[in-house]
Amino acid sequence: MLKRFYPSRDYEALLFDFDGTVADTMGTHLEAWNLGLAAYDLSLSKEQHQTWAGIPTVKIVELLNQKHGTQISAENFLKEKEVHYLASLGTVKSIVPVMEIIQHYHGKLPMAIVTGSRRKIVELTMDHLGIGKYFDLLVCAEDYVNGKPAPDCFLKAAASFNIKPQHCLAFEDADLGIQSAHSAGMDCLKVTADMQLLSLPVSR
């Protein structure tokens, strides 16, 4: 199935970003951001949200504080944003082309979620979508120090599978995530805004 993207490559593991790649959550997350930020007379544009996709919420709050001279408590805001997100969880759907690949390779290749989101939110979203059974591993924001575009999260997933990074294929929708996968030495498929897949090989 992946041969139409990488005709000459076989992979030993598939590593998926979550938000915007497996689950169509970006609009829900943006709404949660802006509901939370309204209390501080701030807002986050769709473009800025996408630019920062893959960065943990706590780090984004730090970036907003630097940008606007505010003193928003990152930990308090994280809790507020999660409440807003979970209130709209029922509207979240999976991304069909990616799920078709996941279902096709289930039981054939090990698969992991590699995300900048917190484990609690990812697990609740996966439960809502009924897709937890497809994944052997979750690597979430609590599991590493340096977020995307650093390669740490993808390298951790590869190491957990005891598979060399160059034998893993990553799936990403955001530029920072693509940089992270490439920095880890992995090929990457990009999930575009219209939910199509584009091949993004890394130079070896």
Rank of each mutant, 00 (worst) to 15 (best):
A53F: 10
L78K: 13
Q71W: 06
K46W: 10
P56A: 04
A39V: 12
F77C: 00
N65A: 01
G69P: 01
Q48A: 15
N65Y: 05
Y40M: 06
A74I: 00
G54V: 12
G69W: 06
F77M: 02
A39D: 04
A74G: 01
I72L: 06
D41P: 09
L42C: 14
A38R: 14
Q50G: 14
S45I: 14
K81T: 04
L78V: 12
K59F: 11
A53C: 10
L42T: 07
L44S: 04
A39C: 15
Q48D: 08
E47F: 12
K79V: 14
S45H: 14
H49I: 08
W52D: 02
V61G: 00
H49E: 02
S45M: 11
I72D: 00
H68L: 08
E47T: 15
K67C: 04
L42S: 04
P56T: 10
W52C: 07
F77D: 00
L44Q: 04
E80L: 12
G54H: 06
L63R: 12
K59S: 12
E75N: 08
A39P: 08
E47L: 13
A53E: 11
H68W: 09
Q66S: 09
D41I: 13
S45L: 09
G54E: 00
L42P: 06
H49Y: 11
G69A: 03
E75L: 10
S73G: 02
W52I: 08
L37F: 09
A53T: 12
L37K: 10
L37H: 05
A38V: 11
Q66V: 14
S45G: 06
H68R: 08
L37T: 02
N65S: 03
Q48M: 13
A38S: 15
L64A: 00
N76L: 13
V61K: 03
N76R: 14
N65T: 01
K67D: 01
H49F: 11
Y40F: 09
G54Y: 03
L44G: 04
T57S: 06
E75S: 07
P56K: 09
